[in-house]
């Protein structure tokens, strides 16, 4: 069975009387261990689909199953638990907490675990090691380059060892070379067995992924 199974998902935003149909009937399944890119122009609905997949944004219609769990059949708190356990997010705008150091940002997801301090630190440094940033662990985000910040965000996503990583425009703010490094990082994480879904509008990135899903206007084009 597929790790992710999306059936008939549509999403209509209705803000201040302005109705936007962001997704119009998405069917999609992704297997465990895949590295998938969602390609599409700005406004096509990539972020919306990722947030629905990430148990953060209830679809207007349709169901989302991850590991057989119907995400939107869960209570709000259980959905939070699901995010904690299953999902590592890399957000579109990085979203590092500016007053916390790199390692503290990475430690955040562990704050609600009952793990002792030493174990938490060990996990955080392992994650930072995985992205090659151990030596800059004590720096604040604004003391890091864009690529390094991106890697801190990746470390925070993997620290809890979730099976699924969702990344929204991970190379959007990076120059070509740094973007390629980040894409190679995702590749190697995927080789370790993580399932990764990322949204991008950069066709270059498709070179690194196993499958590309093209989204146009809220629908899967191919």
């Amino acid at each position: 069975m597929a790790l992710i199974d999306i059936r008939g998902v549509s999403k209509t935003y209705n803000s201040n009387g302005c109705v936007v149909q962001a997704l119009k009937g998405i069917d999609l399944s992704i297997d465990e261990g895949e590295l998938v890119a969602m390609m599409g122009p700005s406004g096509s609905g990539k972020s919306t689909l990722l947030s629905i997949l990430g148990a953060m944004n209830p679809p207007t219609t349709g169901t989302v199953l991850v590991d057989g769990i119907d995400l939107y059949g869960l209570s709000v708190e259980k959905r939070a638990d699901f995010r904690h356990e299953y999902i590592g997010f890399v957000f579109q705008q990085l979203q590092l907490i500016p007053y916390l150091t790199a390692v503290e940002n990475v430690l955040l997801p562990l704050a609600i675990s009952k793990r002792p301090h030493r174990e938490q630190e060990a996990m955080a440094f392992r994650a930072l090691g995985r992205v090659g940033l151990v030596d800059k662990a004590r720096r604040l985000p604004n003391q890091l380059s864009g690529g390094e910040q991106e890697r801190v965000a990746v470390a925070r996503a993997i620290v809890n060892e979730p099976p699924l990583i969702l990344a929204d425009e991970p190379t959007g703010n990076l120059d070509t070379q740094t973007g390629e490094e980040v894409m190679r990082l995702f590749q190697s994480l995927n080789e370790d067995g993580l399932t990764i879904v990322l949204a991008t509008h950069n066709p270059e990135n498709t070179r690194y992924v196993g499958r590309t899903i093209r989204i146009r206007d809220g629908r899967i084009a191919s």
Binding site: E77, A80, D81, P109
Partner: peptide, 8 residues
């Protein structure tokens, strides 16, 4: 962010 990374 806290909520997204699974804080209840």
């Amino acid at each position: 962010i806290f909520r997204a990374i699974g804080f209840r």
